[in-house]
Design a protein around this nucleic acid. Structure first.
Lengths: 250, 250
DNA sequence: AACTAAACTGTCACTACCGACAGTTACATG
DNA sequence: CATGTAACTGTCGGTAGTGACAGTTTAGTT
């Protein structure tokens, strides 16, 4: 019981949370080291991803595993653990590895492979969504028997969750600072207008009439909007625009 | 110090977190009552919103304030506190009310009004994003002097954060269960699939290949979707589908 | 048995969209 | 002056989307 509630341990936890919250902890390895000094955990993995029709596209990956384990992880097929990633990345609720292991038998070879190289298969994945729809997670593993992990997790999930959120916030804020520099992605007024009318079901000819410009210009603005949104069709452009509240409802 | 670290208090907190995590706590008032029994807090407010170019649109609002305070809150203008809501809804990091109060002087009249009717102005707002881009927050207030609140918050932010996340997960899961029922009465599975792929930028031919059907069938499903959504183009159909969360983000 | 809904498919004529080639003016900034 | 951004425009060849005509099979319900 002292393990969970001991005063020194609690003080260390609160100190860690202060550092992550106020110390601007946007360096993954620094954060991982801090977490491993404070908690009895083995490894951490932070991953940001986008979901595409071809499967998950990893945008950012930081972890404490060595290169060998990463190579093994990827060569054995990220798709193997895809259902678990999708579950964690598609929701909000923490995903317990052992629960997912039982639920998705197709992932068993990957868990076996991890055990073969001495990695623990007890852990939890914490979904970290963001307002812009970007998906991320922090996975934490520990070298403990199942019953001990279950109790440890119960005591510290709140610590993991807040630390993960604050770290994720720092990462997002850094990403946003970087992204602000990319001004080419902002739609002009005219581009927004043609997107809005297209979303309302109007053809180019109709939009041209409404706005008092040529159809050719409508197409020019639309083409610009597609390029800036990095999409291949107007339909996709409108989907993105609505998702990111770039256009009003009319 | 016992206030933070006392064994009974910690046990009550972990019990609460168990209930929220495993008890399927999707009733807001039940959740609020549980939180108020466990923590020394005054009020809670859970809000889901969409950001539109015309301002914030509140989708869901639950709170422990009486009807009079809600009326006062809304009549005094949600737009007054809009910068704080936007900050909380547009990010991931917890927003301290006192910090926001200093940062946004235009909100001062609203804080004054709250004090006039005896509501505390010490609190924190916890952003609760979701993978589908829906924004929410849980605000927690306490009747304490600033220095006491600061210390209490430091001890319990992790508890608030995890409890909020788990409650938010329950709310989302219930929303998704409802949305699935509603969707079943309108678009069929295949219609939703072709819409989703179209929104992802795929042409009919590409969608046909992906789904292993003919292009003709893709067009048939698409035509059905347009008719059911009462729209005249695929672009408009996708805009409506995204707005009403009829299709997932892929 | 008859009906409905869902999933699946072909052909035709027409239109709307698309990239690629080309251009303009006005304004702001270095 | 040169450069970048925003708004504006024409022509051409090709393709993706659209409605309209037609059909099939299967499963569930009355």
């Amino acid at each position: 019981m002292n393990r969970c509630y001991g005063m020194t341990n609690q003080q260390a936890v609160l100190d860690l949370l202060d550092i992550v919250e106020y110390g601007g902890c946007a360096e993954p390895q620094q954060f991982f080291a801090l977490m491993r000094r404070t908690f009895d955990i083995a490894h951490l993995l932070y991953l940001e991803a986008e979901s595409t029709p071809e499967g998950l596209k990893v945008c950012r990956l930081h972890h404490t595993f060595g290169a060998y384990a990463e190579e093994l992880y990827l060569s054995r097929g990220l798709h193997r653990i895809d259902p678990i990633l999708r579950l964690a990345l598609g929701g909000v609720r923490p995903v317990e590895w052992a629960t997912a292991r039982r639920r998705f038998p197709e992932c068993e070879p990957l868990f076996q492979a991890a055990e073969d190289i001495g990695l623990s298969t007890e852990g939890v994945a914490l979904p970290l969504p963001s307002p812009a729809g970007r998906m991320a997670l922090l996975a934490i593993s520990a070298n403990m028997p199942p019953a001990e992990w279950s109790e440890y997790r119960r005591c510290h999930l709140r610590d993991f969750q807040l630390a993960a959120n604050l770290f994720h916030a720092s990462m997002l804020e850094q990403s946003m600072a970087d992204a602000i520099d990319e001004r080419d992605t902002r739609l002009t007024g005219r581009e927004t207008e043609v997107l809005t009318w297209s979303a309302a079901g109007k053809s180019y000819w109709e939009i041209a009439t409404i706005l008092g410009i040529s159809e050719r210009t409508v197409r020019f603005f639309m083409s610009n909007a597609r390029r800036k949104l990095n999409v291949v069709s107007n339909t996709q452009a409108v989907a993105q625009a609505v998702r990111h509240a770039l256009i009003p409802n009319i």
